[in-house]
């Protein structure tokens, strides 16, 4: 029996279809047929923990057992947790710092308030990267600045709130930003003045009503998240982003993502080193 679990029971095509559809219904993530091994690898520990010898039993548990919802949340957490690091896709962040932040500083200078949403923030590196860029720009001193990171997984949010990271998270960070961290026994921790700008919350991007709690935001980062969604779920998430953005607000997607076939509501803005989307100004 131990051997069986070492290898794990094989996942049949029907079992894969059932689990894939359930995850898709729950959080919009769409696993293609080539992702079967990802699901098998990431969920095998749950199968072992619950003592099931087949994926069909696991699916049955998720759907019918009283604790099924909690287990599904855990499964989604295992399937959606993606590795991230500080200053990922730096060219886009440079464009954000050099071109978007000054524009936002100009636009909002009367109300002195800036709100950025990092949707699907995982363990928080992107949220703190944005906050560091804002602090480093010195354009917003004395402003009300909020960088809000959301994720569907509670586990990653707990880690994000700790704000403490090991070396792997810093592999792309230019050394000049090291001053925003302090060394600690568990790793490097983001300095309090940066952390005080950052807030976290649990959101399923498909839960439109709950996402509305975020309120109006000036820019949204949703990088390398929508690639896991099916088309319909992408449309729904992008619709939410549109509604949350103030007119003239920016949407920054991952380098391989676009709104082609998803939404015509946004306009494309050419920056010096990147292209981003923007909600059109009112009346335009």
């Amino acid at each position: 029996m131990a051997l069986l679990f070492e290898e794990g029971p094989p996942m049949g095509p029907e079992e894969f279809r059932l689990l894939r559809d359930l995850v898709n219904e729950t959080c919009g993530i769409d696993f293609g047929w080539d992702a079967k091994f990802v699901i098998e690898r990431r969920l095998r520990e749950r199968l072992r923990a619950l003592g099931f010898s087949s994926w069909a039993r696991y699916h049955e548990y998720l759907v019918f057992h009283p604790r099924g919802d909690a287990e599904l949340e855990q499964a989604v957490e295992l399937l959606t947790t993606n590795e991230t690091y500080f200053f990922r896709e730096k060219y886009q962040l440079d464009a954000f710092a050099r071109e978007i932040l000054p524009r936002l500083a100009e636009r909002n200078r009367a109300k002195k308030r800036l709100t950025i949403w990092s949707a699907g923030c995982s363990t928080g590196e992107e949220v703190y990267t944005i906050a560091i860029l804002i602090a480093d720009s010195r354009l917003f001193e004395g402003w009300e600045v909020r960088v809000f990171g959301s994720d569907i997984s509670r586990g990653v949010l707990r880690k994000a709130r700790r704000g403490t990271y090991t070396e792997a998270s810093f592999r792309a960070m230019p050394s000049r930003y090291e001053r925003y961290f302090v060394e600690g026994p568990a790793g490097r921790q983001v300095r309090p003045e940066v952390r005080s700008m950052c807030h976290f919350g649990q959101l399923n991007l498909l839960a439109h009503e709950r996402s509305a709690i975020v309120g109006a935001v000036d820019a949204i980062f949703c990088r390398n998240v929508l690639i896991y969604f099916d088309e319909e779920s992408r449309r729904r998430a992008v619709r939410t982003f549109f509604e949350r953005l103030v007119p003239g607000g920016y949407l920054l997607l991952g380098h391989s993502e676009s709104l082609l076939h998803i939404s015509n509501d946004f306009e494309l803005v050419h920056l010096s080193s990147d292209m981003v989307y923007r909600r059109p100004e009112l009346g335009i």
Partner: peptide, 13 residues
Amino acid sequence: APVDLIALSLTDE
């Protein structure tokens, strides 16, 4: 009180 900040916490985990 920063009402929007308090409201954001309605999404706290």
